[in-house]
Structure formats: structure tokens, C-alpha cells
Design a protein around this nucleic acid. Structure first.
Length: 577
DNA sequence: CGAGCTATAAACAGTA
DNA sequence: CTACTGTTTATAGCTC
């Protein structure tokens, strides 16, 4: 019952997600749930006390009444008591279930396997936030909605004052405050897996009327029972009234909690962001013809990109990307924002955290084309993409790139050609692009090398609280899932692995606490040999194959295969969850 | 101020 | 011819 209210009053889950990193969200949710539980318990306690009190007074008053009447009233109150207890249990159960649902890792809806051009399927809003569906229901039941949903949800967002004229916020049925009785009863029973077609008050072969557990073999018998035992009489109406109050109280309680949550959110991060027109282009990428077979390898973030917590607990509305300050948002037009590229967190980590955001918000990602292209390529198991696949990655991952296709595609091509780090390889299926990591690193060292202020800025820009800082740290320390992802490791051909080193920006992630010994890091980014399975570039091959002079990993503690080196490159992955 | 990097635009060639 | 791919040049903004 409360869910609808939540989604109305509070930040949208998307907002939550963008404000908070998945771990934070999870923590917050848990806190909230614990809080709710606690308060509910308190509330129920009070209710019971009240009832007891009423019972007592009634008993006293009843002394003048005929004994039968007294008995009836007493019974009624006892039943109310029972009912309250039951309700309490059910609510607690529901809350717990919600907790489970919202935190369930298996839900993994993050990496939506979106079609090449269909772009985002922005949703997968967890049931919890949808304001729909019975609390206890598994979230898988929720139907995925397309773009409109996003906008609809966004309409409820506080930050976007002028959302596109889209469909109204879907199905938040405000609770009929006055007469929640039926609704409540419904929900009550629905948590008991009632079978379709049955009566809301009938389930598991017994009457679900508060305080009544009469066994009824079938629906007909139950109906009969209902009509006889729970007919319109004083007792029933009283029970209804109590139930009503309970519901109202809970709603009030929920409102308070929502308010509190909002305040918490506001405190933790959220400021009213400028109403940003986030148009949802949904522009299905016109250009995709010749190569459109798009093997787009699996989902964008093959490994554990945020999924479990994020997708489960939160969702999708464009909002400010958590990690970035306003840096990326000012991008109105042909913005210059490579600053962010320079001292932003490793793109993979940034992306990982905010990919839902970029996926849906028409916000220009704070990365250079080069780093984006690289990321796209590196995310695939075999580290190679056709141009068209790269396009698709862009459109899939960024709402921003769903429009102005001519512009950015040109830019992509331009970058591919221009930068030595992108190597074109003739493949069986045509030409694919790969990344020469060494080259990529080569061109960056000068930047960002030991600029305390920059580093500091970057960190502060990326984190918005201790929680996130630690999360960032965790990210920074986590290893690079790509390499450990299925299909990536060609057993026995370690040489074919394309070693990764620091992510773009060379170092950004590093200043964060890690295994200490990374002394004066990133002064000379390790040079790694580059090699791709497809390889057949005579010219560069010789040079590339040779491990660079400085092959020593920055972190001495790490020995061995290239995978380990990828510590910095993390695409925050499995181990995050 | 210049160097380096990046974005954007556009011309052009090759190919399917 | 058209669309796509890939290369190249030019221009401009930004940071250091």
C-alpha cells in the first residue's frame, strides 16, 4: 500500500541511483527498511496498547451491560487485537520481502541486452519503486517498459521541472485515503499468494478476515462463511474501522519516512539541480546498414556492472550522474569537457557506476571519444569491434549519442583514424578495430602526472561522502573483470591477452587508498605489449609484441599474468556486489 | 604564448 | 548512385 506513496513523494529510484552508488543505495535501503520495521513495530505496539486500553474501559463500562453484549464486544476487541497482530506480522513480512526484492542480486537487470538500435530499455524499475504490484510479489513480474516509462518516471523527479510531455506517471494510484479498507484487505491477502480468481479474503483454504482463520474447503464455502460470519454487523464494521485506522496510520508513517528519506538524500548529496531538459531522443540510429549484423557481444557490462544492487534497488531516471559534479552537465552543445576525461575516474568505473544514467539521460558523457571507443572495444570479449559495432555501443550506452549521429559518428571515425592507439585489423568478417593499449597510454602520461590539486579535485568530484569514497576506493582496488570474464581468457594463450593498464586518465583512480606500495605511481605508465587475437599487422606487430621496456607493474605486489595488472582498469565488476 | 589534446566539420577516396 | 568506411585537413577551444 505504501509503495505508491513512496514513489510519489520521494525521489525517484533513478534519482536515488544516480545520487548514490549501488552500495550506498543498498545500505540506505537497508537502513530505511530497518527503520521502517522498527517504527512499525512501535506503531503496532501502540495500537495494541490502545486496544488493551479500550478493552479495559469497555469491560468496565460493560458492567452495566448485559453479559452477552459484553461478551460480544470483548470478542470484537480481541479479534481486533488479533487482527492487529496479524497485520503486524504481515506488514513485517512484506517489508522484509521488499527488502529481499529490492536487494536481490539475481535480478540483474542492469545489463539489458538491448537491441542494437532500440537503444535503451530504460526501465526494469524494481517493483518496490513502481508503486504497483503487491509488495510480496517478485519483481520479475514487472513488465519492462520502454522509453516513455522513463520519461514518465522522470516526471515525478523533483529535479526535472519540465519533463517532456509524456505520458503521465504511470499507474501511481494514489491511495484513496478515506476508504482503504478494501485495498488493504486485498494487499493483505495478496501476500499470501492467493490464486487468481479467488477472493481477496480467502487464501490457503482459510478465511483471511482479520482474526478469523476458519477453514473453508472451497470458495463457495468461504463465501458462505463470509456472509454468515462476517456480515455487516457491529463487529465487522468495527474491525473495518480499525483496519482503516491502521492503514491510515501506516500511510502517515510512510509519509514521514519518505520525508525523512528525502531529507537524508538531500543532505547526502542532492541539491535541486537545474531543470535540465532531458529530451529522450529514442532516435533509433539511422545509420546501420552494412555491418548491422552487430555481434555486439553480450551486454554492455558483461560483468557485474552495478547490476544487482542498482537494478534491484534503483533504476533509471536521468539525473545528475553521481560521480560527476556538474562537470558533465554543463555540456549544452559542442561542449568542451575533456577536463573530466583527464582527471575523471577511470572511464570504466565511471561508466559502471553511471551507465544507467548515461543510458537514459541525454547528457553528454564526460569522456573523450577516444576513451569511449577504447572502452567499447575493451568491453568485448575479443577486444575488437567493427565500426558499426562501435556506433552501436555508443548509442546503446549513451542517450546522448542517439541523436546528432552524423556529428559524433564522424568524430568516432576521425578518432579511430587519428589516434595511433586504434588499430584497424582485417578480419574474416571485415575490418575490426582494436586498441593498442600501449599507444593509448603513451599519449597520456604528460597529463595529470602528479598534480595534487587535480587529483584532489577529481576525487572530491567523484565522491560525495564517505560512503562513496570508500566505494570508489573499492572500485579502484577491484580488479578488472573484463579479463576474467568468460571468453576473455584464452587458456593457454596468455600472450593473446591484451594487457590493460591504467585506465584513461592514466591515474585517476589511483590516488585512492590501495595496497600502499604504489609509490610515486603513474609517472611512467607501464608499457604493455599489445596483441590481439586477430592480429596480422606486419608493420606494427614487431614493435608491439615486444613488451615495453618498463614492463614492471606499478604495484610490486602484483606478480604474474597481465590480468593482475588490470587492477586499475577495473570495470567494477563481480566482486563489487 | 605555444604545445598538446580534443571536438567539430568537411573534403575526399575506396568499396559494397 | 548511394551509403558506409576510412583518411586527412582545417579550425577552434581548453589546459598546462
Amino acid at each position: 500500500m505504501s509503495v505508491a506513496m513512496m514513489s510519489q513523494q520521494m525521489l525517484t529510484p533513478q534519482q536515488m541511483q544516480q545520487i548514490l552508488s549501488p552500495p550506498q543505495l543498498q545500505a540506505l535501503l537497508q537502513q530505511q527498511q530497518a527503520l521502517m520495521l522498527q517504527q512499525l513495530q512501535e506503531y503496532y505496539k501502540k495500537q495494541q496498547e490502545q486496544l488493551h486500553l479500550q478493552l479495559l474501559t469497555q469491560q468496565q463500562a460493560g458492567k452495566q451491560q448485559p453479559k452477552e453484549a459484553l461478551g460480544n464486544k470483548q470478542l470484537a476487541f480481541q479479534q481486533q487485537l488479533l487482527q492487529i497482530q496479524q497485520l503486524q506480522q504481515q506488514h513485517l513480512l512484506n517489508l522484509q520481502r521488499q527488502g529481499l526484492v529490492s536487494l536481490q542480486p539475481s535480478q540483474a537487470s542492469g545489463p539489458l541486452q538491448t537491441l542494437p538500435q532500440a537503444a535503451v530499455c530504460p526501465t526494469d524499475l524494481p517493483q518496490l519503486w513502481k508503486g504497483e504490484g503487491a509488495p510480496g510479489q517478485p519483481a520479475e513480474d514487472s513488465v519492462r517498459q520502454e522509453g516513455l516509462d522513463l520519461a514518465g518516471t522522470a516526471a515525478t523527479a523533483t529535479s526535472f521541472a519540465s519533463p517532456p510531455k509524456v505520458s503521465p506517471p504511470l499507474s501511481h494510484h494514489p491511495l484513496p485515503n478515506g476508504q482503504p479498507t478494501v485495498l488493504t484487505a486485498r494487499r493483505d491477502s495478496s501476500s499470501h499468494e492467493e490464486t487468481p480468481g479467488s477472493h481477496p479474503l480467502y487464501g490457503h483454504g482459510e478465511c483471511k478476515w482479520p482474526g478469523c482463520e476458519t477453514l473453508c474447503e472451497d470458495l463457495g464455502q468461504f463465501i458462505k462463511h463470509l456472509n454468515t460470519e462476517h456480515a455487516l454487523d457491529d463487529r465487522s464494521t468495527a474491525q473495518c474501522r480499525v483496519q482503516m485506522q491502521v492503514v491510515q496510520q501506516l500511510e502517515i508513517q510512510l509519509a514521514k519516512e519518505s520525508e525523512r528519506l528525502q531529507a537524508m538524500m538531500a543532505h547526502l548529496h542532492m541539491r535541486p539541480s537545474e531543470p535540465k531538459p532531458f529530451s529522450q531522443p529514442l532516435n533509433p540510429v539511422p545509420g546501420s546498414s552494412s555491418f548491422s549484423k552487430v555481434t555486439v557481444s553480450a551486454d554492455p557490462f558483461p560483468d557485474g556492472l552495478v547490476h544487482p544492487p542498482t537494478s534491484a534497488a534503483a533504476p533509471v531516471t536521468p539525473l545528475r550522474p553521481p560521480g560527476l559534479g556538474s562537470a558533465s552537465l554543463h555540456s549544452g552543445g559542442p561542449a568542451r569537457r575533456r577536463s573530466s576525461d583527464k582527471f575523471c575516474s577511470p572511464i570504466s568505473s565511471e561508466l559502471a557506476q553511471n551507465h544507467e544514467f548515461y543510458k537514459n539521460a541525454d547528457v553528454r558523457p564526460p569522456f573523450t571519444y577516444a576513451s569511449l571507443i577504447r572502452q567499447a572495444i575493451l568491453e568485448t570479449p575479443d577486444r575488437q569491434l567493427t565500426l558499426n559495432e562501435i556506433y552501436n555501443w555508443f548509442t546503446r550506452m549513451f542517450a546522448y549519442f542517439r541523436r546528432n549521429t552524423a556529428t559524433w559518428k564522424n568524430a568516432v571515425r576521425h578518432n579511430l583514424s587519428l589516434h595511433k592507439c586504434f588499430v584497424r585489423v582485417e578480419n574474416v568478417k571485415g575490418a575490426v578495430w582494436t586498441v593498442d593499449e600501449r599507444e593509448y597510454q603513451k599519449r597520456r602520461p604528460p597529463k595529470m602526472t602528479g598534480s595534487p590539486t587535480l587529483v584532489k579535485n577529481m576525487i572530491s568530484g567523484l565522491s560525495y561522502g564517505a560512503l562513496n569514497a570508500s566505494y570508489q576506493a573499492a572500485l579502484a582496488e577491484s580488479s578488472f573483470p573484463l579479463l576474467s570474464s568468460p571468453g576473455m581468457l584464452n587458456p593457454g594463450s596468455a600472450s593473446s591477452l591484451l594487457p590493460l593498464s591504467q585506465d584513461d586518465g592514466g591515474a585517476p583512480g589511483e590516488p585512492l587508498p590501495s595496497n600502499g606500495s604504489s609509490s610515486p605511481p603513474r609517472l611512467s605508465p607501464p608499457q604493455y605489449s599489445h596483441q590481439v587475437q586477430v592480429k596480422e599487422e606486419p608493420t606494427e606487430a614487431g614493435e608491439e609484441r615486444r613488451p615495453g621496456p618498463a614492463l614492471v607493474p606499478p604495484t610490486p605486489s602484483i606478480v604474474g599474468p597481465p590480468e593482475d595488472r588490470d587492477l586499475e582498469e577495473e570495470l567494477p565488476g563481480e566482486e563489487l556486489s
